[in-house]
Amino acid sequence: MNKKYDKLGSDVFNKVEKINSELFTLTYGALVTQLIKDYEDIEQVNIKLEQMGYNIGIRLIEEFLAKSGIGRCTDFTETAEVIAKVGFKMFLGVTCQVTDWDTEKKEFHLIIDDNPLSDFVELPDHLKHKLYYSNILCGVIRGALEMVQMKVKCTFVKCSLSDDNTCSIKVVLEEVLSDLVPVGYD
C-alpha cells in the first residue's frame, strides 16, 4: 500500500504547475507576522491560523480529489497514508511519516521533515512553545477531511522551531459523519 501512494504522490506532483517555494515561504511568513501584529494574544494567532487553514482545506480537497483520482478510503489508516504520501506531496512537495497509531486506529501522528512553511524561520524565545507557526496545516487537514465526512481534531505536538527535533501533528478521528455522505457513496 505504501509504495503505491508514494508513486501516486510523485506522479501528481510532477504534473502540477509549480512555482518557486521561496515566494510561498516568505508570503506565509508575512501572514504570520501580520497576525501577530493584529492580535495581541498568541493563542488567538494560533486559532486564526487554524481557521484560515480550515477555509483552505474545504476548498483544497476538491482539487486533491480531481487531480489524484483517489476514491473513498476503506479505513482511517488508509486515509492517513493518503494524506501523508499524496496530499502533502501534491501540495507541499514533501512526504510525511505516519506513526504512533493508538490501539483503536483512531489516532495517529504525522511527522513532517523539511516543512517548507518554516524554511529560514527562527522563532524568538518568547514565542517558542507558544506560537504554533505552521498551525495552518492543522486547519487544512481538518477542513479537507470534513468535506469527505470525517470529523477530526488536529494539534501540533512537536515543532522544530521550538527546539524539538521534528515537526509532528496529532490527528484524532472524532466522528464519521455518515448522514452527510453523498448519495450512492455509502
Partner: peptide
C-alpha cells in the same frame, strides 16, 4: 444528460 458527482457531494 450526463452527471458527475464528486466525493464531496458537488
Amino acid at each position: 444528460l450526463q452527471c458527475f458527482q464528486t466525493h464531496t457531494g458537488t
